[in-house]
Design a protein around this nucleic acid. Structure first.
Lengths: 256, 256
DNA sequence: GGGCTAGTCGTACAGTGTACGACAAGAACG
DNA sequence: CGTTCTTGTCGTACACTGTACGACTAGCCC
Protein backbone atom coordinates (compact mmCIF):
# COMPACT_ATOMS: atom_id res chain seq x y z
CA UNK A 1 0.00 0.00 0.00
CA UNK A 2 1.82 3.04 -1.22
CA UNK A 3 0.34 6.33 -0.09
CA UNK A 4 0.87 9.63 -1.84
CA UNK A 5 2.02 12.79 -0.12
CA UNK A 6 1.50 16.45 -0.65
CA UNK A 7 -1.72 16.59 -2.65
CA UNK A 8 -2.74 19.94 -1.24
CA UNK A 9 -1.45 23.47 -1.52
CA UNK A 10 2.38 23.40 -1.49
CA UNK A 11 2.60 26.66 0.44
CA UNK A 12 0.31 25.32 3.16
CA UNK A 13 2.34 22.11 3.38
CA UNK A 14 5.58 24.02 3.73
CA UNK A 15 4.17 26.22 6.48
CA UNK A 16 3.20 23.10 8.35
CA UNK A 17 6.56 21.42 7.82
CA UNK A 18 8.37 24.39 9.31
CA UNK A 19 5.62 24.98 11.89
CA UNK A 20 5.19 28.57 10.79
CA UNK A 21 1.70 28.72 12.26
CA UNK A 22 0.61 26.69 15.21
CA UNK A 23 -3.05 26.72 16.28
CA UNK A 24 -3.61 27.32 19.98
CA UNK A 25 -6.53 25.08 20.83
CA UNK A 26 -9.09 26.13 23.36
CA UNK A 27 -11.83 23.53 23.09
CA UNK A 28 -11.82 19.93 24.23
CA UNK A 29 -8.72 19.25 22.19
CA UNK A 30 -6.85 21.45 24.65
CA UNK A 31 -7.71 18.99 27.40
CA UNK A 32 -6.15 16.20 25.34
CA UNK A 33 -3.15 18.51 24.83
CA UNK A 34 -3.34 18.13 21.09
CA UNK A 35 -0.99 19.81 18.65
CA UNK A 36 0.47 19.10 15.24
CA UNK A 37 3.48 17.50 16.89
CA UNK A 38 1.38 15.25 19.11
CA UNK A 39 -0.64 14.12 16.11
CA UNK A 40 2.46 13.43 14.04
CA UNK A 41 4.21 11.62 16.87
CA UNK A 42 1.20 9.42 17.50
CA UNK A 43 0.91 8.67 13.79
CA UNK A 44 4.57 7.66 13.64
CA UNK A 45 4.20 5.49 16.73
CA UNK A 46 1.21 3.77 15.21
CA UNK A 47 2.88 3.22 11.85
CA UNK A 48 6.04 1.94 13.56
CA UNK A 49 4.07 -0.53 15.66
CA UNK A 50 1.47 -1.80 13.23
CA UNK A 51 2.46 -0.60 9.78
CA UNK A 52 1.08 2.01 7.44
CA UNK A 53 -1.96 -0.14 6.80
CA UNK A 54 -3.12 0.34 10.37
CA UNK A 55 -2.83 4.11 10.10
CA UNK A 56 -6.35 5.28 9.45
CA UNK A 57 -7.67 8.61 10.57
CA UNK A 58 -10.28 6.93 12.78
CA UNK A 59 -7.70 4.67 14.40
CA UNK A 60 -5.26 7.51 14.98
CA UNK A 61 -8.01 9.64 16.49
CA UNK A 62 -8.99 6.81 18.81
CA UNK A 63 -5.39 6.44 19.94
CA UNK A 64 -5.37 10.15 20.75
CA UNK A 65 -8.73 10.00 22.52
CA UNK A 66 -10.57 12.32 20.14
CA UNK A 67 -13.07 12.03 17.31
CA UNK A 68 -11.85 11.33 13.81
CA UNK A 69 -12.71 14.72 12.39
CA UNK A 70 -10.80 16.52 15.13
CA UNK A 71 -7.55 15.58 13.42
CA UNK A 72 -8.49 17.80 10.52
CA UNK A 73 -8.10 20.80 12.78
CA UNK A 74 -4.38 20.15 12.99
CA UNK A 75 -3.70 18.65 9.58
CA UNK A 76 -5.42 19.52 6.28
CA UNK A 77 -5.61 15.93 5.07
CA UNK A 78 -3.93 12.56 5.39
CA UNK A 79 -1.46 13.36 2.60
CA UNK A 80 -0.07 16.29 4.55
CA UNK A 81 0.12 14.16 7.69
CA UNK A 82 2.28 11.71 5.74
CA UNK A 83 4.51 14.59 4.63
CA UNK A 84 4.98 15.58 8.24
CA UNK A 85 5.66 12.00 9.30
CA UNK A 86 8.29 11.55 6.60
CA UNK A 87 10.12 14.76 7.44
CA UNK A 88 9.99 14.00 11.15
CA UNK A 89 11.26 10.43 10.77
CA UNK A 90 14.05 11.51 8.44
CA UNK A 91 15.01 13.99 11.12
CA UNK A 92 16.54 11.06 13.01
CA UNK A 93 19.13 10.64 10.29
CA UNK A 94 21.80 12.93 11.79
CA UNK A 95 21.81 11.04 15.09
CA UNK A 96 22.45 7.79 13.21
CA UNK A 97 25.22 9.24 11.06
CA UNK A 98 28.76 9.02 12.40
CA UNK A 99 31.11 9.86 9.53
CA UNK A 100 34.86 9.51 9.33
CA UNK A 101 36.02 12.95 8.37
CA UNK A 102 38.85 12.42 5.93
CA UNK A 103 37.75 9.72 3.55
CA UNK A 104 34.89 10.39 1.12
CA UNK A 105 34.32 6.67 0.65
CA UNK A 106 33.95 6.06 4.38
CA UNK A 107 31.65 9.07 4.64
CA UNK A 108 29.44 7.85 1.82
CA UNK A 109 29.32 4.39 3.33
CA UNK A 110 28.28 5.90 6.65
CA UNK A 111 25.52 7.83 4.88
CA UNK A 112 24.24 4.60 3.35
CA UNK A 113 24.30 2.75 6.67
CA UNK A 114 22.58 5.57 8.51
CA UNK A 115 19.92 5.73 5.83
CA UNK A 116 19.45 1.97 6.08
CA UNK A 117 19.01 2.31 9.84
CA UNK A 118 16.38 4.98 9.33
CA UNK A 119 14.39 2.65 7.13
CA UNK A 120 14.85 -0.15 9.64
CA UNK A 121 13.39 2.01 12.38
CA UNK A 122 10.53 3.30 10.22
CA UNK A 123 9.81 0.75 7.49
CA UNK A 124 6.63 2.57 6.46
CA UNK A 125 8.84 5.34 5.01
CA UNK A 126 9.30 3.08 2.00
CA UNK A 127 5.56 2.91 1.42
CA UNK A 128 5.20 6.65 1.18
CA UNK A 129 5.80 7.86 -2.34
CA UNK A 130 7.68 11.13 -2.06
CA UNK A 131 10.62 10.90 -4.41
CA UNK A 132 9.16 13.14 -7.08
CA UNK A 133 8.19 16.00 -4.82
CA UNK A 134 9.76 15.46 -1.42
CA UNK A 135 8.42 17.32 1.61
CA UNK A 136 11.06 20.04 1.88
CA UNK A 137 11.08 20.27 5.65
CA UNK A 138 14.02 20.51 8.04
CA UNK A 139 14.43 16.73 8.26
CA UNK A 140 14.66 16.16 4.53
CA UNK A 141 16.94 19.12 3.95
CA UNK A 142 19.29 18.12 6.77
CA UNK A 143 19.67 14.63 5.38
CA UNK A 144 20.33 16.08 1.92
CA UNK A 145 22.89 18.48 3.38
CA UNK A 146 24.80 15.73 5.16
CA UNK A 147 24.67 13.51 2.10
CA UNK A 148 26.10 16.24 -0.09
CA UNK A 149 28.81 17.05 2.46
CA UNK A 150 29.91 13.43 2.24
CA UNK A 151 30.79 13.79 -1.43
CA UNK A 152 32.13 17.30 -1.12
CA UNK A 153 35.82 17.80 -1.75
CA UNK A 154 36.04 14.88 -4.16
CA UNK A 155 36.56 17.09 -7.16
CA UNK A 156 33.15 16.22 -8.54
CA UNK A 157 31.04 19.09 -9.83
CA UNK A 158 27.71 20.03 -8.29
CA UNK A 159 25.59 18.02 -10.70
CA UNK A 160 27.66 14.89 -10.11
CA UNK A 161 27.56 15.41 -6.33
CA UNK A 162 23.79 15.45 -6.43
CA UNK A 163 23.70 12.44 -8.74
CA UNK A 164 25.97 10.38 -6.50
CA UNK A 165 23.93 11.07 -3.39
CA UNK A 166 20.71 10.29 -5.25
CA UNK A 167 22.20 7.06 -6.53
CA UNK A 168 23.28 5.87 -3.08
CA UNK A 169 20.03 6.92 -1.51
CA UNK A 170 17.95 5.14 -4.14
CA UNK A 171 20.01 2.01 -3.76
CA UNK A 172 19.53 1.94 0.02
CA UNK A 173 15.80 2.49 -0.34
CA UNK A 174 15.54 -0.31 -2.87
CA UNK A 175 17.31 -2.93 -0.78
CA UNK A 176 15.56 -1.81 2.40
CA UNK A 177 12.30 -2.27 0.56
CA UNK A 178 13.29 -5.90 0.17
CA UNK A 179 13.29 -6.32 3.94
CA UNK A 180 9.95 -4.59 4.25
CA UNK A 181 8.37 -6.75 1.58
CA UNK A 182 9.62 -9.95 3.15
CA UNK A 183 8.17 -8.99 6.52
CA UNK A 184 4.93 -7.89 4.87
CA UNK A 185 4.70 -11.17 2.96
CA UNK A 186 5.15 -13.15 6.15
CA UNK A 187 2.51 -11.13 7.99
CA UNK A 188 0.04 -11.25 5.11
CA UNK A 189 0.33 -14.98 4.57
CA UNK A 190 1.21 -16.21 8.05
CA UNK A 191 3.79 -18.39 6.37
CA UNK A 192 7.56 -18.12 6.81
CA UNK A 193 9.97 -17.95 3.91
CA UNK A 194 11.06 -21.55 4.59
CA UNK A 195 7.49 -22.85 4.68
CA UNK A 196 6.71 -20.99 1.47
CA UNK A 197 9.61 -22.58 -0.30
CA UNK A 198 8.72 -25.98 1.08
CA UNK A 199 5.24 -25.67 -0.39
CA UNK A 200 6.52 -24.20 -3.66
CA UNK A 201 9.46 -26.49 -4.48
CA UNK A 202 7.61 -29.77 -5.17
CA UNK A 203 5.08 -28.13 -7.49
CA UNK A 204 7.81 -26.16 -9.22
CA UNK A 205 9.70 -29.40 -9.84
CA UNK A 206 6.72 -30.72 -11.80
CA UNK A 207 6.59 -27.80 -14.23
CA UNK A 208 10.23 -26.78 -14.31
CA UNK A 209 12.18 -27.57 -17.46
CA UNK A 210 15.98 -27.50 -16.91
CA UNK A 211 16.65 -27.28 -20.65
CA UNK A 212 14.58 -24.13 -20.92
CA UNK A 213 16.37 -22.44 -17.99
CA UNK A 214 19.91 -23.86 -18.01
CA UNK A 215 21.58 -20.95 -16.25
CA UNK A 216 18.89 -20.69 -13.60
CA UNK A 217 19.29 -24.41 -13.02
CA UNK A 218 23.00 -23.93 -12.40
CA UNK A 219 22.91 -20.66 -10.43
CA UNK A 220 19.58 -20.67 -8.60
CA UNK A 221 20.21 -23.50 -6.14
CA UNK A 222 23.73 -22.31 -5.30
CA UNK A 223 22.58 -18.74 -4.69
CA UNK A 224 19.55 -19.92 -2.73
CA UNK A 225 21.70 -22.11 -0.54
CA UNK A 226 24.20 -19.31 0.10
CA UNK A 227 21.62 -16.81 1.30
CA UNK A 228 19.23 -19.35 2.82
CA UNK A 229 16.35 -17.69 0.98
CA UNK A 230 15.17 -16.69 -2.47
CA UNK A 231 16.45 -13.20 -1.68
CA UNK A 232 18.57 -11.88 1.17
CA UNK A 233 18.29 -8.07 1.34
CA UNK A 234 21.07 -7.63 3.88
CA UNK A 235 23.52 -9.50 1.69
CA UNK A 236 22.29 -7.56 -1.33
CA UNK A 237 22.95 -4.34 0.59
CA UNK A 238 26.54 -5.23 1.45
CA UNK A 239 27.31 -6.52 -2.03
CA UNK A 240 25.66 -3.65 -3.84
CA UNK A 241 27.17 -0.96 -1.65
CA UNK A 242 30.68 -2.24 -2.37
CA UNK A 243 30.03 -2.31 -6.13
CA UNK A 244 28.46 1.14 -6.04
CA UNK A 245 31.33 2.74 -4.14
CA UNK A 246 33.79 1.09 -6.54
CA UNK A 247 31.89 2.63 -9.40
CA UNK A 248 31.86 6.07 -7.81
CA UNK A 249 35.59 5.71 -7.13
CA UNK A 250 36.19 5.25 -10.85
CA UNK A 251 34.39 8.54 -11.44
CA UNK A 252 36.22 10.37 -8.64
CA UNK A 253 39.62 9.13 -9.78
CA UNK A 254 38.82 10.19 -13.31
CA UNK A 255 37.83 13.67 -12.14
CA UNK A 256 40.87 14.14 -9.93
CA UNK B 1 -0.81 2.01 -3.34
CA UNK B 2 1.31 -1.05 -3.11
CA UNK B 3 -0.56 -4.30 -3.40
CA UNK B 4 0.68 -7.61 -2.10
CA UNK B 5 0.83 -10.79 -4.14
CA UNK B 6 0.53 -14.46 -3.40
CA UNK B 7 -1.33 -14.52 -0.11
CA UNK B 8 -2.95 -17.87 -0.85
CA UNK B 9 -1.72 -21.41 -1.18
CA UNK B 10 1.63 -21.40 -3.03
CA UNK B 11 0.86 -24.67 -4.81
CA UNK B 12 -2.42 -23.28 -6.13
CA UNK B 13 -0.68 -20.11 -7.31
CA UNK B 14 1.97 -22.07 -9.14
CA UNK B 15 -0.60 -24.25 -10.86
CA UNK B 16 -2.29 -21.12 -12.08
CA UNK B 17 0.96 -19.48 -13.22
CA UNK B 18 1.80 -22.48 -15.37
CA UNK B 19 -1.86 -23.01 -16.34
CA UNK B 20 -1.79 -26.62 -15.12
CA UNK B 21 -5.55 -26.72 -14.77
CA UNK B 22 -7.88 -24.68 -16.90
CA UNK B 23 -11.59 -24.65 -16.07
CA UNK B 24 -13.87 -25.29 -19.04
CA UNK B 25 -16.77 -22.91 -18.48
CA UNK B 26 -20.26 -23.98 -19.45
CA UNK B 27 -22.56 -21.35 -17.96
CA UNK B 28 -23.06 -17.76 -18.97
CA UNK B 29 -19.34 -17.11 -18.62
CA UNK B 30 -18.88 -19.34 -21.65
CA UNK B 31 -20.87 -16.86 -23.71
CA UNK B 32 -18.47 -14.13 -22.68
CA UNK B 33 -15.61 -16.45 -23.66
CA UNK B 34 -13.98 -16.05 -20.27
CA UNK B 35 -10.78 -17.75 -19.23
CA UNK B 36 -7.88 -17.07 -16.92
CA UNK B 37 -5.98 -15.52 -19.80
CA UNK B 38 -8.85 -13.24 -20.78
CA UNK B 39 -9.20 -12.07 -17.19
CA UNK B 40 -5.47 -11.43 -16.82
CA UNK B 41 -5.24 -9.65 -20.17
CA UNK B 42 -8.17 -7.40 -19.32
CA UNK B 43 -6.66 -6.64 -15.91
CA UNK B 44 -3.34 -5.68 -17.50
CA UNK B 45 -5.09 -3.52 -20.08
CA UNK B 46 -6.99 -1.75 -17.33
CA UNK B 47 -3.92 -1.22 -15.16
CA UNK B 48 -1.93 0.01 -18.17
CA UNK B 49 -4.62 2.52 -19.10
CA UNK B 50 -5.75 3.81 -15.74
CA UNK B 51 -3.28 2.59 -13.17
CA UNK B 52 -3.42 0.01 -10.43
CA UNK B 53 -5.77 2.22 -8.46
CA UNK B 54 -8.49 1.75 -11.06
CA UNK B 55 -8.16 -2.02 -10.93
CA UNK B 56 -10.97 -3.14 -8.68
CA UNK B 57 -12.71 -6.47 -9.03
CA UNK B 58 -16.01 -4.74 -9.77
CA UNK B 59 -14.50 -2.53 -12.43
CA UNK B 60 -12.64 -5.40 -14.07
CA UNK B 61 -15.81 -7.49 -14.10
CA UNK B 62 -17.74 -4.63 -15.69
CA UNK B 63 -15.09 -4.33 -18.39
CA UNK B 64 -15.50 -8.02 -19.10
CA UNK B 65 -19.29 -7.83 -19.08
CA UNK B 66 -19.85 -10.12 -16.10
CA UNK B 67 -20.71 -9.79 -12.43
CA UNK B 68 -17.96 -9.10 -9.93
CA UNK B 69 -18.11 -12.47 -8.23
CA UNK B 70 -17.74 -14.31 -11.53
CA UNK B 71 -14.05 -13.42 -11.55
CA UNK B 72 -13.53 -15.62 -8.52
CA UNK B 73 -14.30 -18.63 -10.68
CA UNK B 74 -11.12 -18.03 -12.63
CA UNK B 75 -8.89 -16.54 -9.96
CA UNK B 76 -8.86 -17.38 -6.23
CA UNK B 77 -8.40 -13.79 -5.10
CA UNK B 78 -7.01 -10.46 -6.20
CA UNK B 79 -3.54 -11.29 -4.89
CA UNK B 80 -3.29 -14.25 -7.26
CA UNK B 81 -4.56 -12.12 -10.11
CA UNK B 82 -1.71 -9.71 -9.44
CA UNK B 83 0.75 -12.60 -9.49
CA UNK B 84 -0.55 -13.62 -12.88
CA UNK B 85 -0.41 -10.04 -14.15
CA UNK B 86 3.20 -9.64 -13.04
CA UNK B 87 4.36 -12.87 -14.61
CA UNK B 88 2.51 -12.11 -17.82
CA UNK B 89 3.86 -8.56 -18.12
CA UNK B 90 7.40 -9.68 -17.38
CA UNK B 91 6.93 -12.17 -20.18
CA UNK B 92 7.44 -9.26 -22.58
CA UNK B 93 11.01 -8.87 -21.41
CA UNK B 94 12.63 -11.20 -23.99
CA UNK B 95 11.09 -9.31 -26.89
CA UNK B 96 12.60 -6.08 -25.56
CA UNK B 97 16.02 -7.57 -24.97
CA UNK B 98 18.51 -7.41 -27.83
CA UNK B 99 21.93 -8.26 -26.42
CA UNK B 100 25.32 -7.97 -28.03
CA UNK B 101 26.75 -11.42 -27.71
CA UNK B 102 30.41 -10.93 -26.89
CA UNK B 103 30.61 -8.23 -24.29
CA UNK B 104 29.21 -8.88 -20.81
CA UNK B 105 29.01 -5.16 -20.15
CA UNK B 106 26.93 -4.53 -23.25
CA UNK B 107 24.71 -7.49 -22.36
CA UNK B 108 24.14 -6.25 -18.84
CA UNK B 109 23.36 -2.78 -20.14
CA UNK B 110 20.85 -4.27 -22.56
CA UNK B 111 19.24 -6.16 -19.69
CA UNK B 112 18.89 -2.93 -17.75
CA UNK B 113 17.39 -1.05 -20.71
CA UNK B 114 14.96 -3.85 -21.51
CA UNK B 115 13.89 -3.97 -17.88
CA UNK B 116 13.41 -0.21 -17.90
CA UNK B 117 11.24 -0.53 -21.01
CA UNK B 118 9.12 -3.18 -19.31
CA UNK B 119 8.45 -0.81 -16.43
CA UNK B 120 7.71 1.98 -18.88
CA UNK B 121 5.08 -0.16 -20.59
CA UNK B 122 3.57 -1.41 -17.33
CA UNK B 123 4.26 1.14 -14.59
CA UNK B 124 1.93 -0.64 -12.16
CA UNK B 125 4.51 -3.43 -11.92
CA UNK B 126 6.37 -1.19 -9.51
CA UNK B 127 3.37 -0.96 -7.23
CA UNK B 128 3.11 -4.70 -6.82
CA UNK B 129 5.30 -5.91 -3.99
CA UNK B 130 6.76 -9.21 -5.11
CA UNK B 131 10.47 -9.04 -4.44
CA UNK B 132 10.41 -11.27 -1.39
CA UNK B 133 8.44 -14.12 -2.90
CA UNK B 134 8.22 -13.58 -6.63
CA UNK B 135 5.58 -15.42 -8.65
CA UNK B 136 7.74 -18.17 -10.13
CA UNK B 137 5.96 -18.41 -13.46
CA UNK B 138 7.42 -18.68 -16.96
CA UNK B 139 7.74 -14.90 -17.36
CA UNK B 140 9.72 -14.33 -14.18
CA UNK B 141 11.95 -17.33 -14.74
CA UNK B 142 12.70 -16.37 -18.34
CA UNK B 143 13.75 -12.89 -17.30
CA UNK B 144 15.94 -14.35 -14.57
CA UNK B 145 17.47 -16.79 -17.06
CA UNK B 146 18.35 -14.06 -19.56
CA UNK B 147 19.72 -11.85 -16.79
CA UNK B 148 21.98 -14.59 -15.55
CA UNK B 149 23.13 -15.43 -19.06
CA UNK B 150 24.27 -11.83 -19.42
CA UNK B 151 26.80 -12.21 -16.59
CA UNK B 152 27.76 -15.77 -17.49
CA UNK B 153 31.30 -16.32 -18.68
CA UNK B 154 32.68 -13.39 -16.69
CA UNK B 155 34.54 -15.63 -14.27
CA UNK B 156 32.18 -14.71 -11.44
CA UNK B 157 30.91 -17.55 -9.29
CA UNK B 158 27.23 -18.43 -9.05
CA UNK B 159 26.53 -16.40 -5.94
CA UNK B 160 28.11 -13.30 -7.48
CA UNK B 161 26.22 -13.80 -10.74
CA UNK B 162 22.95 -13.78 -8.87
CA UNK B 163 24.01 -10.79 -6.80
CA UNK B 164 24.99 -8.74 -9.87
CA UNK B 165 21.70 -9.40 -11.64
CA UNK B 166 19.75 -8.60 -8.48
CA UNK B 167 21.72 -5.37 -8.07
CA UNK B 168 21.06 -4.20 -11.62
CA UNK B 169 17.42 -5.19 -11.47
CA UNK B 170 16.88 -3.39 -8.16
CA UNK B 171 18.55 -0.28 -9.50
CA UNK B 172 16.35 -0.19 -12.59
CA UNK B 173 13.21 -0.71 -10.52
CA UNK B 174 14.23 2.10 -8.17
CA UNK B 175 14.84 4.70 -10.85
CA UNK B 176 11.77 3.61 -12.83
CA UNK B 177 9.76 4.11 -9.67
CA UNK B 178 10.89 7.73 -9.80
CA UNK B 179 9.11 8.17 -13.12
CA UNK B 180 5.99 6.49 -11.81
CA UNK B 181 5.89 8.66 -8.72
CA UNK B 182 6.30 11.86 -10.71
CA UNK B 183 3.42 10.92 -12.98
CA UNK B 184 1.33 9.86 -9.99
CA UNK B 185 2.08 13.14 -8.21
CA UNK B 186 1.00 15.14 -11.24
CA UNK B 187 -2.23 13.17 -11.60
CA UNK B 188 -3.04 13.30 -7.89
CA UNK B 189 -2.46 17.03 -7.57
CA UNK B 190 -3.33 18.26 -11.03
CA UNK B 191 -0.23 20.40 -10.79
CA UNK B 192 2.87 20.09 -12.94
CA UNK B 193 6.37 19.88 -11.53
CA UNK B 194 7.07 23.44 -12.64
CA UNK B 195 3.91 24.81 -11.05
CA UNK B 196 4.69 22.93 -7.85
CA UNK B 197 8.12 24.45 -7.67
CA UNK B 198 6.75 27.90 -8.47
CA UNK B 199 4.37 27.63 -5.52
CA UNK B 200 7.03 26.13 -3.26
CA UNK B 201 10.02 28.36 -3.92
CA UNK B 202 8.78 31.67 -2.44
CA UNK B 203 7.64 30.04 0.80
CA UNK B 204 10.82 28.03 1.04
CA UNK B 205 12.82 31.23 0.68
CA UNK B 206 11.16 32.59 3.81
CA UNK B 207 12.15 29.63 6.02
CA UNK B 208 15.37 28.59 4.37
CA UNK B 209 18.59 29.33 6.22
CA UNK B 210 21.68 29.22 3.93
CA UNK B 211 24.02 28.97 6.92
CA UNK B 212 22.28 25.84 8.13
CA UNK B 213 22.46 24.15 4.72
CA UNK B 214 25.60 25.51 3.05
CA UNK B 215 26.21 22.60 0.72
CA UNK B 216 22.56 22.38 -0.34
CA UNK B 217 22.71 26.11 -1.05
CA UNK B 218 25.67 25.59 -3.36
CA UNK B 219 24.60 22.31 -5.04
CA UNK B 220 20.80 22.37 -5.09
CA UNK B 221 20.23 25.20 -7.55
CA UNK B 222 22.91 23.96 -9.96
CA UNK B 223 21.55 20.43 -9.95
CA UNK B 224 17.99 21.65 -10.23
CA UNK B 225 18.87 23.83 -13.17
CA UNK B 226 20.71 20.99 -14.92
CA UNK B 227 17.83 18.54 -14.76
CA UNK B 228 15.05 21.13 -14.98
CA UNK B 229 13.38 19.50 -11.97
CA UNK B 230 13.96 18.48 -8.38
CA UNK B 231 14.64 15.00 -9.68
CA UNK B 232 15.15 13.66 -13.20
CA UNK B 233 14.76 9.86 -13.21
CA UNK B 234 16.01 9.38 -16.76
CA UNK B 235 19.24 11.20 -16.00
CA UNK B 236 19.54 9.26 -12.75
CA UNK B 237 19.17 6.05 -14.75
CA UNK B 238 21.95 6.88 -17.20
CA UNK B 239 24.29 8.15 -14.51
CA UNK B 240 23.65 5.28 -12.12
CA UNK B 241 23.91 2.58 -14.75
CA UNK B 242 27.35 3.82 -15.79
CA UNK B 243 28.57 3.87 -12.16
CA UNK B 244 27.09 0.45 -11.48
CA UNK B 245 28.69 -1.17 -14.51
CA UNK B 246 32.03 0.42 -13.58
CA UNK B 247 31.67 -1.11 -10.14
CA UNK B 248 30.84 -4.54 -11.52
CA UNK B 249 33.80 -4.24 -13.87
CA UNK B 250 36.10 -3.80 -10.89
CA UNK B 251 34.75 -7.06 -9.51
CA UNK B 252 35.02 -8.90 -12.82
CA UNK B 253 38.57 -7.71 -13.44
CA UNK B 254 39.53 -8.79 -9.95
CA UNK B 255 38.05 -12.24 -10.48
CA UNK B 256 39.69 -12.77 -13.87
C1' DG C 1 -24.87 37.81 31.19
C1' DG C 2 -24.71 37.87 26.05
C1' DG C 3 -22.47 37.15 21.80
C1' DC C 4 -18.94 35.46 19.04
C1' DT C 5 -15.42 32.48 17.58
C1' DA C 6 -13.07 28.42 16.95
C1' DG C 7 -12.39 23.56 18.03
C1' DT C 8 -15.14 19.06 18.16
C1' DC C 9 -17.31 15.40 16.05
C1' DG C 10 -21.81 12.54 14.34
C1' DT C 11 -23.49 11.47 10.06
C1' DA C 12 -23.25 10.41 5.33
C1' DC C 13 -21.28 9.02 0.79
C1' DA C 14 -18.97 6.44 -2.54
C1' DG C 15 -15.78 3.23 -2.63
C1' DT C 16 -12.92 -1.56 -1.47
C1' DG C 17 -12.32 -7.24 -1.35
C1' DT C 18 -14.82 -11.17 -0.82
C1' DA C 19 -17.98 -14.81 2.08
C1' DC C 20 -22.35 -16.68 1.54
C1' DG C 21 -26.06 -18.63 -0.62
C1' DA C 22 -29.69 -18.55 -4.13
C1' DC C 23 -30.13 -19.49 -8.89
C1' DA C 24 -29.90 -21.40 -13.49
C1' DA C 25 -27.94 -23.74 -17.42
C1' DG C 26 -25.98 -27.72 -19.31
C1' DA C 27 -24.65 -32.79 -18.93
C1' DA C 28 -25.60 -37.50 -17.58
C1' DC C 29 -28.62 -41.07 -16.90
C1' DG C 30 -33.01 -43.71 -16.61
C1' DC D 1 -38.31 -37.04 -22.63
C1' DG D 2 -37.92 -36.15 -17.44
C1' DT D 3 -35.05 -36.01 -13.51
C1' DT D 4 -30.94 -35.27 -10.98
C1' DC D 5 -26.40 -33.54 -10.40
C1' DT D 6 -22.69 -30.47 -11.28
C1' DT D 7 -20.78 -26.16 -12.06
C1' DG D 8 -20.53 -21.40 -13.21
C1' DT D 9 -23.00 -16.85 -12.17
C1' DC D 10 -23.91 -13.10 -9.35
C1' DG D 11 -27.05 -10.12 -5.73
C1' DT D 12 -26.50 -9.03 -1.15
C1' DA D 13 -24.03 -7.97 2.94
C1' DC D 14 -20.08 -6.70 6.03
C1' DA D 15 -16.50 -4.09 7.78
C1' DC D 16 -13.56 -0.71 6.35
C1' DT D 17 -11.52 3.78 4.00
C1' DG D 18 -10.93 9.47 3.65
C1' DT D 19 -13.31 13.43 4.33
C1' DA D 20 -17.40 17.17 3.22
C1' DC D 21 -20.97 19.12 5.76
C1' DG D 22 -23.20 21.14 9.39
C1' DA D 23 -24.73 21.01 14.25
C1' DC D 24 -22.96 21.68 18.72
C1' DT D 25 -20.52 23.64 22.54
C1' DA D 26 -16.74 25.43 25.45
C1' DG D 27 -14.19 29.29 26.38
C1' DC D 28 -13.03 34.28 25.66
C1' DC D 29 -14.17 39.21 25.39
C1' DC D 30 -17.19 43.03 26.22
Amino acid sequence: MTEITGTGDPARSLSLLWRLVEPSPRGRGAEAGLSVDRVVDAAIALADAEGLGALSMRRLATDLGVGAMTLYTYVPAKAELLDLMVDSALGEFPSLYAPAADDWRARLEAVARASWSTYERHPWLLNVAASGRPPLGPGVLTKYELGLQAVDGTGLDEVAMDAVFTLIEGFVAGTARGVVEQVAAQQATGITEAEWWEATAPVLDRVYDPERFPTVTRVGPVAGEAQQAAYDPRRAFEFGLARLLDGVAVLVDGAA
